[in-house]
Amino acid sequence: MTEILQTPKLVVVFGGSGFVGRHVVRALAKRGYRVRVACRRPDLAGHLQPLGNVGQIQAVQANIRVRWSVDNAVQGADHVINLVGILHESGRQRFGVVHDFGARAVAEAARSVGAGLTHVSALGASADSQSDYARTKALGEKAVFDTKQDAVIYRPSINFGPEDGFFNRFAAMARFSPVLPLIGGGETRFQPVYVGDVAEAIARSVEGKVEGGRVYELGGPNVLTFKQCLQEMLTVIERKRLLVAMPWWVARLQASILGLLPNPLLTGDQVTLLQSDNVVSDAAAKEGRTLAALGITAKSVGTILPSYLWRFRAAGQFQRKPAA
């Protein structure tokens, strides 16, 4: 009797060539899915190919600002994932267009082909936020649920991992600067979450193991202040640096200048965002909308940072031996 082989499901990942995206693509490829990565520059997505078998991962051109390209990218999809987001505005990349219009475009495209949808937002998203980033993220969530009521929405805290833009950036600064700034005194609280855990949560939603129509808040096992994050990083890279408190007004002044650069270290909107804690809410914990509720044991900063920040040590991967 001839055995009929089923074609693996096709998952389309918008923004799959970015930091979070490469980990999501890897988690999906390990499960045997066919993965179509929709990104603006597929010619720069070659680093994804080794994450799967030959022909398993395909990069296609799509821009969530251009609706027809979104519709084309989702053709034949069984599930759609939207990871697209920006931390600062530049050129045509505006918060409202990317986070709100783009989210609705992806949701409508997924609905049109009958595909499931997983949308990645951000912890702290709120329609009442003074931050344009957080406010448009909330508008994007509303657009998703208005379009697909059974969608899964994830709100991760700061993602950390080998290619992150947080610990890597401050570790790079510590190589040359004797001083690191504590914006607003460094008291803002975060709940850094390992990017691999976020990718696992997303993959489980594709498998149908996550209840739709809910917003899940993803945070790591530890709540750390901004100052504690930098102290943890400095311990890992074995460097001593002076941590100097930067008042909010100084941070805003500095951001007004740095924000003019093509890839700014700090913007005024980010300063506004840093004035609010970025941790999982008590309601999410009580209602089972966390990593733990999804059956995922979150990895700590102390466990993961040494695996990739060693390159910022003076001796690189070769740890210094304590004096006898």
Rank of each mutant, 00 (worst) to 15 (best):
G15N: 10
I57P: 03
L258Y: 12
K142V: 06
L139Q: 15
F312H: 15
A201D: 11
F145A: 09
A172E: 15
T188Y: 07
K321N: 08
P178G: 14
A138W: 11
S90W: 13
E238L: 01
R41V: 11
Q228D: 06
L182D: 00
E200R: 02
E141D: 14
A298I: 09
R313H: 12
A203N: 11
S129V: 01
V152F: 08
G185C: 11
G213E: 06
L260K: 12
L291G: 11
I153E: 06
D164E: 08
F95L: 06
L294R: 07
P50T: 14
A314L: 01
S205H: 04
A315Q: 12
H119Q: 15
A115I: 00
A62R: 08
S276M: 03
G116I: 00
V250Y: 01
F19V: 00
V236L: 10
A251S: 13
P178Y: 10
F101A: 14
R241D: 14
G16Q: 04
V74S: 10
I183S: 06
H47P: 08
L117T: 06
E3H: 13
E89W: 05
K321S: 07
V74F: 14
Q228G: 03
P156Y: 04
E187F: 01
G161Q: 10
F318Q: 12
G288I: 00
V210I: 14
I57T: 02
V13N: 07
G220R: 07
S112V: 09
C39N: 13
A115Q: 03
G18H: 02
V98S: 00
R313P: 13
K9F: 11
P181I: 03
V250G: 05
D150L: 03
R252C: 06
V113E: 06
R40E: 13
G21A: 10
V74Y: 12
I4T: 11
Y194V: 01
A323N: 07
E200S: 05
Y154V: 03
I4R: 12
A251T: 04
M173W: 15
R26L: 13
S121M: 04
G116C: 03
L28M: 14
L243M: 05
T2L: 14
K209T: 05
G288M: 01
R214H: 13
Q231A: 00
P192I: 02
H119L: 06
V206Q: 10
F95G: 08
G85R: 04
L180T: 09
L10F: 01
R214D: 12
L139V: 01
G32C: 13
V113S: 07
K227P: 01
E287L: 08
P322C: 05
S112D: 15
A255R: 02
L48Y: 13
M246P: 00
L305M: 12
G46V: 14
V280S: 10
V215T: 15
K137Y: 02
A323L: 13
R169F: 08
N82T: 00
Q319Y: 10
G124T: 04
V97P: 00
W310V: 05
Q319K: 15
G91F: 10
S121R: 02
